[in-house]
Amino acid sequence: MDSFFIGTGVALCLLMLLTLHRAIRGPTAIDRIMGLNVIGTKTTILLVIIGTIYHRVDMFVDIALAYALLNFIVAIAASRYFQHRKNLNPKGYGFRYRSEGEK
């Protein structure tokens, strides 16, 4: 059963890698926030899975609880940012410098 959970964990890491693609390349900043949120949920579950593999889940569940409680602060903070400064720049500039004329 342990190896089953290890396999589940590795599969979750793989899905996290695919989500990370959206979080890194994602055209706008809000796509990145969305990716961050999804990664946070997966982290919560992986913490409980690691606790199960260690057979000491009562020690690990507190950390997952902290993540479940605090995970959405970043999303709310970023949404507040966009309510004040509306320069989302839908074209997006990920890994290149913004040219002069571009808004």
Partner: peptide
């Protein structure tokens, strides 16, 4: 944890979508 995820995750989704709407996506 399930309860808190069910409370916090839709709120975060709402906040991000609202940010996108406000800034004109």
């Amino acid at each position: 944890i399930v309860v808190f995820i069910f409370m916090a995750s839709p709120t975060a989704t709402h906040a991000i979508t609202d940010a996108g709407y406000e800034s004109g996506v």
